[in-house]
């Protein structure tokens, strides 16, 4: 489980996250959505220990990230927005590298990699060097890298970005499967259809704070909208008049 409580983070005069709180529960897929610059990436980076909060707390499976970053990171599998592969290493070597850094024994690492290669359908390219991979192939390797140590909690930033329809469906199935196995999945996506199809819980953020949250059905009901895109737009617009009022005052 990932818990964020009253998180604040500023970069100079820019308040990137302003009192954000959310809970991503085990066995649920929680979607964090918001416009560009809403503070999603900053919040994620704080969860996986790359940034320290100015105030508030972040914990992963009860371990405070600021207190024991390494312990928290052992329970996390992360698919960042920038996949960051090494052009001279093969897909398999990427997965081995990350698995070895997680401390997996060699035999287990090999077996686990084989499972992931099959599960993510990487057989055709996994032993080729990453230079020249398509975006979809890059994403699959990055996903394999994130899952190699069987993390209980997953943070997925745009998990199907760049994938074709078949591969997207396979990744969605995998995410659901992980959810069904009891994993906590926190994802961010700009594809509302994907968010709608995958997420059990939604948190809409803007300007570093939560605008609204609930299950997709609850949100649709709250905003009297048929689809999540309308919910998203309505929640963002709800903030805009308030901002205009502040300006007038």
């Amino acid at each position: 489980m990932i818990e964020i409580r009253g998180l604040k983070k500023a970069f100079g005069k820019v308040q990137a996250v302003d009192g954000l709180s959310l809970v991503a529960r085990d066995g649920r897929i929680t979607g964090l959505i918001g416009p560009n610059g809403a503070g999603k990436t900053t919040a994620f980076r704080t969860v996986y220990g790359l940034l320290s909060p100015n105030s508030g707390s972040v914990s992963v499976d009860g371990t405070a990230v600021t207190r024991d970053r390494l312990a928290a990171q052992r329970h996390l599998g992360v698919l960042p927005d920038v996949r960051g592969l090494y052009p001279r290493l093969t897909g398999r070597e990427h997965i081995h590298y990350y698995g070895a850094l997680q401390g997996l024994p060699r035999d287990e690492l090999r077996a686990r990699t084989s499972v992931l290669v099959d599960r993510l359908d990487m057989g055709g390219f996994v032993d080729r060097r990453a230079r020249g991979y398509s975006r979809g192939q890059e994403l699959k390797v990055a996903l394999g890298r994130a899952l190699v140590h069987r993390p209980h909690n997953l943070i997925l930033d745009e998990p199907t970005n760049g994938l074709d329809v078949v591969s997207s469906r396979a990744v969605r199935d995998l995410i659901r499967e992980l959810r069904d196995q009891g994993h906590c999945v926190l994802l961010s996506s700009h594809i509302m259809a994907e968010v709608s199809a995958l997420c059990d819980d939604l948190v809409i953020v803007s300007e570093g704070a939560v605008l609204t949250e609930g299950t997709p059905d609850q949100l649709r009901e709250r905003y009297a909208a048929d689809d999540l895109e309308d919910v998203f737009v309505a929640s963002i617009n709800q903030l805009a008049p308030a901002r205009e009022l502040e300006t007038v005052e």
Binding site: G49, Q73, V82, G84
Partner: peptide
């Protein structure tokens, strides 16, 4: 620069 530092820093290595 190639974006591989961020995923690397997320692994539990000092």
């Amino acid at each position: 620069e190639r974006g591989s530092l961020e995923p690397l820093l997320i692994t539990p290595i000092e």
